[in-house]
Design a protein around this nucleic acid. Structure first.
Lengths: 142, 142
DNA sequence: GGTTGACTTGGAGTTGACTCCAGCGAGTCT
DNA sequence: AGACTCGCTGGAGTCAACTCCAAGTCAACC
Protein backbone atom coordinates (compact mmCIF):
# COMPACT_ATOMS: atom_id res chain seq x y z
CA UNK A 1 0.00 0.00 0.00
CA UNK A 2 2.90 2.40 0.68
CA UNK A 3 6.27 2.59 -1.01
CA UNK A 4 9.83 3.48 -0.12
CA UNK A 5 11.71 6.02 -2.19
CA UNK A 6 13.48 3.17 -4.00
CA UNK A 7 10.19 1.70 -5.16
CA UNK A 8 8.88 5.07 -6.30
CA UNK A 9 12.11 5.67 -8.19
CA UNK A 10 11.69 2.41 -10.07
CA UNK A 11 8.01 2.89 -10.77
CA UNK A 12 8.24 6.44 -12.11
CA UNK A 13 11.76 6.55 -13.47
CA UNK A 14 12.92 9.51 -11.40
CA UNK A 15 16.03 9.38 -9.22
CA UNK A 16 15.73 9.41 -5.42
CA UNK A 17 17.57 12.72 -5.44
CA UNK A 18 15.03 14.22 -7.81
CA UNK A 19 12.13 12.95 -5.71
CA UNK A 20 13.58 14.53 -2.56
CA UNK A 21 14.37 17.69 -4.50
CA UNK A 22 10.80 17.93 -5.80
CA UNK A 23 9.43 17.58 -2.31
CA UNK A 24 11.88 20.11 -0.89
CA UNK A 25 10.92 22.84 -3.35
CA UNK A 26 7.20 22.09 -2.98
CA UNK A 27 6.73 20.52 -6.38
CA UNK A 28 4.95 17.65 -4.67
CA UNK A 29 3.15 17.90 -1.32
CA UNK A 30 5.06 16.72 1.78
CA UNK A 31 5.33 12.95 1.98
CA UNK A 32 4.55 11.09 5.23
CA UNK A 33 7.37 9.52 7.26
CA UNK A 34 7.69 6.49 9.49
CA UNK A 35 9.04 6.62 13.05
CA UNK A 36 12.64 6.80 11.80
CA UNK A 37 11.98 9.73 9.48
CA UNK A 38 11.96 7.58 6.32
CA UNK A 39 9.58 8.60 3.54
CA UNK A 40 6.46 6.53 3.08
CA UNK A 41 4.91 7.20 -0.34
CA UNK A 42 1.18 6.51 -0.63
CA UNK A 43 -0.78 5.93 -3.83
CA UNK A 44 -1.92 9.53 -3.49
CA UNK A 45 1.72 10.67 -3.55
CA UNK A 46 2.25 8.45 -6.55
CA UNK A 47 -0.55 10.19 -8.44
CA UNK A 48 1.03 13.56 -7.75
CA UNK A 49 4.43 12.35 -8.88
CA UNK A 50 2.98 10.99 -12.08
CA UNK A 51 1.12 14.20 -12.79
CA UNK A 52 4.17 16.37 -12.10
CA UNK A 53 6.42 14.11 -14.14
CA UNK A 54 4.12 14.28 -17.15
CA UNK A 55 3.72 18.02 -16.87
CA UNK A 56 7.50 18.41 -16.72
CA UNK A 57 7.88 16.15 -19.76
CA UNK A 58 5.42 18.37 -21.57
CA UNK A 59 7.75 21.29 -20.85
CA UNK A 60 5.84 22.99 -18.04
CA UNK A 61 8.11 25.06 -15.79
CA UNK A 62 8.78 23.92 -12.25
CA UNK A 63 7.72 27.40 -11.11
CA UNK A 64 4.15 27.05 -12.38
CA UNK A 65 3.77 23.60 -10.85
CA UNK A 66 5.00 24.79 -7.46
CA UNK A 67 2.32 27.44 -7.53
CA UNK A 68 -0.32 24.88 -8.44
CA UNK A 69 0.70 22.57 -5.60
CA UNK A 70 0.80 25.45 -3.13
CA UNK A 71 -2.72 26.50 -4.09
CA UNK A 72 -3.90 22.92 -3.82
CA UNK A 73 -2.69 22.80 -0.25
CA UNK A 74 -4.67 25.90 0.62
CA UNK A 75 -7.90 24.03 -0.02
CA UNK A 76 -11.10 24.39 -2.01
CA UNK A 77 -11.07 28.19 -2.03
CA UNK A 78 -8.24 28.20 -4.58
CA UNK A 79 -10.03 26.00 -7.10
CA UNK A 80 -10.56 28.67 -9.74
CA UNK A 81 -6.97 29.94 -9.49
CA UNK A 82 -5.77 26.37 -9.97
CA UNK A 83 -8.09 25.83 -12.88
CA UNK A 84 -6.72 28.99 -14.48
CA UNK A 85 -3.16 27.70 -14.16
CA UNK A 86 -4.17 24.50 -15.91
CA UNK A 87 -5.88 26.44 -18.67
CA UNK A 88 -2.82 28.67 -19.16
CA UNK A 89 -0.44 25.74 -19.23
CA UNK A 90 -2.71 23.85 -21.58
CA UNK A 91 -2.57 26.79 -23.97
CA UNK A 92 1.21 26.93 -23.81
CA UNK A 93 1.55 23.22 -24.45
CA UNK A 94 -0.88 23.44 -27.35
CA UNK A 95 1.13 26.29 -28.86
CA UNK A 96 4.34 24.32 -28.56
CA UNK A 97 2.69 21.26 -30.13
CA UNK A 98 1.51 23.38 -33.04
CA UNK A 99 4.96 24.79 -33.74
CA UNK A 100 6.54 21.39 -33.38
CA UNK A 101 4.11 19.99 -35.91
CA UNK A 102 5.10 22.73 -38.34
CA UNK A 103 8.71 21.76 -37.76
CA UNK A 104 7.87 18.12 -38.46
CA UNK A 105 6.42 19.08 -41.83
CA UNK A 106 9.40 21.23 -42.58
CA UNK A 107 11.75 18.39 -41.67
CA UNK A 108 9.78 16.01 -43.85
CA UNK A 109 10.25 18.30 -46.84
CA UNK A 110 13.94 18.65 -46.05
CA UNK A 111 14.45 14.91 -45.69
CA UNK A 112 12.63 14.37 -48.96
CA UNK A 113 14.98 16.85 -50.60
CA UNK A 114 17.89 14.77 -49.43
CA UNK A 115 16.29 11.75 -51.04
CA UNK A 116 15.49 13.47 -54.33
CA UNK A 117 18.46 15.70 -54.94
CA UNK A 118 21.43 14.98 -52.80
CA UNK A 119 21.46 11.22 -52.45
CA UNK A 120 21.16 10.52 -56.18
CA UNK A 121 24.15 12.81 -56.68
CA UNK A 122 26.09 10.75 -54.18
CA UNK A 123 25.12 7.54 -55.90
CA UNK A 124 26.38 8.89 -59.20
CA UNK A 125 29.67 9.67 -57.54
CA UNK A 126 29.81 6.18 -56.12
CA UNK A 127 29.14 4.65 -59.53
CA UNK A 128 32.14 6.61 -60.76
CA UNK A 129 30.07 7.82 -63.68
CA UNK A 130 30.46 11.51 -62.93
CA UNK A 131 29.60 13.70 -65.90
CA UNK A 132 29.73 17.18 -64.26
CA UNK A 133 28.66 18.94 -61.07
CA UNK A 134 25.22 18.06 -59.71
CA UNK A 135 22.82 19.41 -57.08
CA UNK A 136 25.08 21.43 -54.84
CA UNK A 137 24.46 22.02 -51.16
CA UNK A 138 23.77 25.69 -51.74
CA UNK A 139 20.34 24.70 -53.00
CA UNK A 140 19.39 23.37 -49.55
CA UNK A 141 20.01 26.09 -47.04
CA UNK A 142 16.66 26.38 -45.30
CA UNK B 1 20.24 42.67 -49.54
CA UNK B 2 22.41 42.26 -46.42
CA UNK B 3 21.59 43.01 -42.79
CA UNK B 4 23.35 44.20 -39.67
CA UNK B 5 23.03 42.24 -36.46
CA UNK B 6 20.39 44.73 -35.25
CA UNK B 7 18.17 44.00 -38.25
CA UNK B 8 18.57 40.26 -37.88
CA UNK B 9 17.74 40.54 -34.19
CA UNK B 10 14.50 42.31 -35.02
CA UNK B 11 13.54 40.02 -37.85
CA UNK B 12 14.09 36.76 -36.01
CA UNK B 13 13.50 37.76 -32.42
CA UNK B 14 16.85 36.60 -31.08
CA UNK B 15 19.16 38.90 -29.12
CA UNK B 16 22.41 40.13 -30.66
CA UNK B 17 24.26 38.24 -27.93
CA UNK B 18 22.52 35.02 -28.86
CA UNK B 19 23.30 35.49 -32.54
CA UNK B 20 26.99 36.03 -31.81
CA UNK B 21 26.94 33.09 -29.40
CA UNK B 22 25.38 30.83 -32.01
CA UNK B 23 28.04 31.77 -34.52
CA UNK B 24 30.86 31.32 -32.02
CA UNK B 25 29.86 27.78 -31.10
CA UNK B 26 29.24 26.83 -34.73
CA UNK B 27 25.48 26.66 -34.52
CA UNK B 28 25.32 28.81 -37.62
CA UNK B 29 28.07 29.01 -40.25
CA UNK B 30 30.48 31.98 -40.04
CA UNK B 31 28.90 35.26 -41.16
CA UNK B 32 30.72 37.58 -43.58
CA UNK B 33 32.15 40.90 -42.37
CA UNK B 34 32.67 44.30 -43.89
CA UNK B 35 36.03 46.12 -43.92
CA UNK B 36 35.62 47.16 -40.29
CA UNK B 37 34.92 43.63 -39.05
CA UNK B 38 31.16 44.21 -38.65
CA UNK B 39 28.87 41.29 -39.42
CA UNK B 40 27.01 41.38 -42.70
CA UNK B 41 24.14 38.89 -42.69
CA UNK B 42 22.97 37.66 -46.10
CA UNK B 43 19.62 36.06 -46.94
CA UNK B 44 21.45 32.74 -46.82
CA UNK B 45 22.50 33.44 -43.23
CA UNK B 46 18.91 34.40 -42.49
CA UNK B 47 17.68 31.02 -43.70
CA UNK B 48 20.11 29.26 -41.42
CA UNK B 49 19.09 31.37 -38.47
CA UNK B 50 15.43 30.66 -39.10
CA UNK B 51 16.06 26.94 -39.39
CA UNK B 52 18.15 26.83 -36.23
CA UNK B 53 15.68 28.94 -34.32
CA UNK B 54 12.77 26.68 -35.25
CA UNK B 55 14.73 23.55 -34.43
CA UNK B 56 15.63 25.02 -31.03
CA UNK B 57 11.99 25.94 -30.43
CA UNK B 58 11.07 22.36 -31.22
CA UNK B 59 13.43 21.29 -28.43
CA UNK B 60 16.39 20.06 -30.48
CA UNK B 61 19.65 20.23 -28.55
CA UNK B 62 22.31 22.73 -29.55
CA UNK B 63 24.77 19.82 -29.69
CA UNK B 64 22.95 18.03 -32.51
CA UNK B 65 22.58 21.20 -34.53
CA UNK B 66 26.27 22.02 -34.22
CA UNK B 67 27.05 18.61 -35.64
CA UNK B 68 24.63 19.17 -38.51
CA UNK B 69 26.15 22.54 -39.37
CA UNK B 70 29.68 21.13 -39.16
CA UNK B 71 28.79 18.33 -41.57
CA UNK B 72 27.16 20.80 -43.90
CA UNK B 73 30.38 22.77 -44.12
CA UNK B 74 32.26 19.64 -45.10
CA UNK B 75 30.34 19.47 -48.36
CA UNK B 76 28.29 16.99 -50.34
CA UNK B 77 30.05 13.91 -49.04
CA UNK B 78 28.30 14.25 -45.68
CA UNK B 79 24.78 14.34 -47.12
CA UNK B 80 23.68 10.97 -45.79
CA UNK B 81 25.06 11.66 -42.30
CA UNK B 82 23.15 14.94 -42.28
CA UNK B 83 20.00 13.26 -43.49
CA UNK B 84 20.32 10.75 -40.67
CA UNK B 85 20.54 13.53 -38.10
CA UNK B 86 17.35 15.05 -39.47
CA UNK B 87 15.61 11.68 -39.35
CA UNK B 88 16.71 11.09 -35.76
CA UNK B 89 15.65 14.53 -34.63
CA UNK B 90 12.37 14.20 -36.45
CA UNK B 91 11.67 11.03 -34.52
CA UNK B 92 12.48 12.69 -31.21
CA UNK B 93 10.24 15.65 -31.96
CA UNK B 94 7.42 13.33 -33.01
CA UNK B 95 7.76 11.41 -29.75
CA UNK B 96 7.60 14.59 -27.74
CA UNK B 97 4.57 15.78 -29.69
CA UNK B 98 2.80 12.50 -28.97
CA UNK B 99 3.40 12.68 -25.24
CA UNK B 100 2.39 16.33 -25.16
CA UNK B 101 -0.85 15.48 -26.89
CA UNK B 102 -1.56 12.87 -24.24
CA UNK B 103 -0.94 15.54 -21.64
CA UNK B 104 -3.34 17.87 -23.42
CA UNK B 105 -6.08 15.25 -23.18
CA UNK B 106 -5.29 14.64 -19.56
CA UNK B 107 -5.43 18.36 -18.83
CA UNK B 108 -8.73 18.64 -20.65
CA UNK B 109 -10.23 15.97 -18.42
CA UNK B 110 -8.82 17.69 -15.37
CA UNK B 111 -10.11 21.10 -16.36
CA UNK B 112 -13.51 19.58 -17.03
CA UNK B 113 -13.46 18.12 -13.54
CA UNK B 114 -12.93 21.58 -12.16
CA UNK B 115 -15.97 22.73 -14.08
CA UNK B 116 -18.17 19.84 -13.03
CA UNK B 117 -17.23 19.23 -9.44
CA UNK B 118 -15.23 21.99 -7.86
CA UNK B 119 -16.63 25.16 -9.34
CA UNK B 120 -20.29 24.32 -8.59
CA UNK B 121 -19.23 23.75 -5.00
CA UNK B 122 -17.69 27.21 -4.91
CA UNK B 123 -20.81 28.74 -6.37
CA UNK B 124 -22.93 27.13 -3.69
CA UNK B 125 -20.63 28.65 -1.08
CA UNK B 126 -20.95 32.04 -2.72
CA UNK B 127 -24.73 31.78 -2.73
CA UNK B 128 -24.46 31.23 1.02
CA UNK B 129 -26.81 28.29 0.68
CA UNK B 130 -24.43 25.73 2.13
CA UNK B 131 -26.15 22.58 3.26
CA UNK B 132 -23.16 20.37 4.05
CA UNK B 133 -19.68 19.55 2.68
CA UNK B 134 -19.41 19.01 -1.07
CA UNK B 135 -16.86 17.67 -3.57
CA UNK B 136 -13.59 17.82 -1.66
CA UNK B 137 -10.17 18.27 -3.25
CA UNK B 138 -9.16 14.75 -2.35
CA UNK B 139 -11.26 13.56 -5.26
CA UNK B 140 -8.94 15.36 -7.71
CA UNK B 141 -5.43 14.28 -7.04
CA UNK B 142 -4.28 13.03 -10.44
C1' DG C 1 38.58 66.62 -34.32
C1' DG C 2 35.75 65.30 -30.71
C1' DT C 3 31.52 63.01 -29.45
C1' DT C 4 28.02 59.63 -30.31
C1' DG C 5 26.37 55.19 -31.02
C1' DA C 6 26.44 50.68 -33.05
C1' DC C 7 29.48 47.05 -33.26
C1' DT C 8 33.54 44.04 -31.83
C1' DT C 9 35.93 40.43 -28.60
C1' DG C 10 36.96 37.39 -24.73
C1' DG C 11 35.54 36.09 -20.69
C1' DA C 12 32.73 36.07 -16.59
C1' DG C 13 28.07 35.57 -14.63
C1' DT C 14 23.24 33.84 -14.49
C1' DT C 15 19.27 30.75 -14.73
C1' DG C 16 16.65 26.55 -14.38
C1' DA C 17 16.73 22.12 -13.07
C1' DC C 18 18.70 18.95 -11.28
C1' DT C 19 22.78 15.86 -9.23
C1' DC C 20 26.21 14.66 -6.02
C1' DC C 21 28.21 14.16 -1.65
C1' DA C 22 29.81 14.04 3.32
C1' DG C 23 28.31 12.78 7.53
C1' DC C 24 24.97 10.75 10.20
C1' DG C 25 21.02 7.41 11.89
C1' DA C 26 17.99 3.28 11.71
C1' DG C 27 17.20 -1.54 10.59
C1' DT C 28 18.99 -6.09 9.36
C1' DC C 29 22.06 -9.92 8.82
C1' DT C 30 25.85 -13.01 10.93
C1' DA D 1 28.64 -6.31 18.43
C1' DG D 2 30.27 -5.22 13.93
C1' DA D 3 29.37 -4.71 9.14
C1' DC D 4 26.03 -3.62 5.46
C1' DT D 5 22.49 -1.36 3.26
C1' DC D 6 19.23 2.12 2.74
C1' DG D 7 17.69 6.54 3.77
C1' DC D 8 18.15 11.33 5.77
C1' DT D 9 19.76 16.42 5.54
C1' DG D 10 22.01 20.62 4.08
C1' DG D 11 24.77 22.39 1.02
C1' DA D 12 27.86 22.42 -2.83
C1' DG D 13 28.54 21.26 -7.68
C1' DT D 14 27.15 20.53 -12.58
C1' DC D 15 25.17 21.23 -17.05
C1' DA D 16 22.93 23.49 -21.00
C1' DA D 17 22.06 27.56 -22.89
C1' DC D 18 22.32 31.68 -22.80
C1' DT D 19 23.24 36.76 -20.99
C1' DC D 20 25.98 40.45 -19.49
C1' DC D 21 29.94 43.31 -19.40
C1' DA D 22 34.38 46.03 -19.85
C1' DA D 23 37.32 47.75 -22.99
C1' DG D 24 38.19 48.76 -27.53
C1' DT D 25 37.27 49.95 -32.79
C1' DC D 26 35.11 52.36 -36.41
C1' DA D 27 32.03 55.36 -39.24
C1' DA D 28 29.36 59.31 -39.18
C1' DC D 29 27.82 63.55 -37.81
C1' DC D 30 28.52 68.40 -35.67
Amino acid sequence: MSMTIAEVRKRYGLTADTLRYYERIGLIPPVGRNAGGVRNYTEHDGNWIDFIKCMRNAGVQVEALIEYVALFQQGDATASARKQILIDQRAQIAARVASMQKMLERLDRKIEQYENHIMPAEKKLQRKAVKGRVAHNAAMTH
